[in-house]
Write a protein that binds this DNA or RNA. Structure first.
Lengths: 109, 109
DNA sequence: AATTTTAATTGCAATATTACGATAATTATA
DNA sequence: TATAATTATCGTAATATTGCAATTAAAATT
């Protein structure tokens, strides 16, 4: 069917999954790294740096914006994208907490 | 097209993305949590607990096995799934390292 | 050996994702 | 105001993902 049955999972499970899903594409990882590396984070620069078409980059930027990990500031005809530090930390902690689960001795096989 | 242009990204970017992609579905998060919570990690139990059809669970288990985060031990007609502690830590560290990047002052917008 | 139990695989339908050309929208500049 | 520059949106093609019924595979039990 292609449609995820979100309703049978907990809010927390859906939240972790939806964040991970957005991180689950190399272009979006590359965009985040480029935004962090460069002080400038103009959409056009990302297009040049990453090597995907402008509409494709724009689409990935929108998905990153949807989970709030980046924000965009309109500067004339350009848009400056940057990390939302608060959300970045929130997502980092969300994943860290997931992985902090005690798995010792669960290696039963 | 639906096909990711992996060749234009670094190995590290592809690695992070492919791990995140597998974590990017609530059923797979639920499966991991259930395996950790229960000592028993029989496929059939996961079907009952999670409420998706057996082939669907089996498919998600295969994806989790593909990145090595779980392993399956055949016990007669049953299969006992469990966390691969080493790979679990490896993936935890991979994501933690990604999020450790210094973003201070990058909040330029 | 036949049956039962359990999980993997196959095949398929529905939907989602990825990528990009064309176009629209918006602001700056000539 | 017309043009240029930049980014978002629309439309579409190709591929991927999700989910399940039906079937197969393999081991245990009768």
């Amino acid at each position: 069917m292609g449609v995820t049955k979100s309703e049978i999972f907990s809010e927390s499970q859906n939240q972790i999954a939806s964040v991970a899903k957005v991180l689950g594409h190399p272009a979006r990882i590359a965009i985040l790294q480029q935004i962090i590396k460069a002080k400038s984070c103009i959409c056009g620069d990302l297009v040049t740096e990453i090597g995907l078409a402008q509409p494709t980059i724009s689409q990935h930027l929108r998905e990153l914006k949807n989970i709030g990990i980046i924000k965009g500031d309109i500067e004339g005809t350009r848009v400056c994208y940057c990390i939302d530090e608060e959300k970045w930390s929130e997502i980092r902690d969300l994943l860290a907490t997931f992985f902090q689960q005690d798995i010792c001795g669960k290696d039963c096989c």
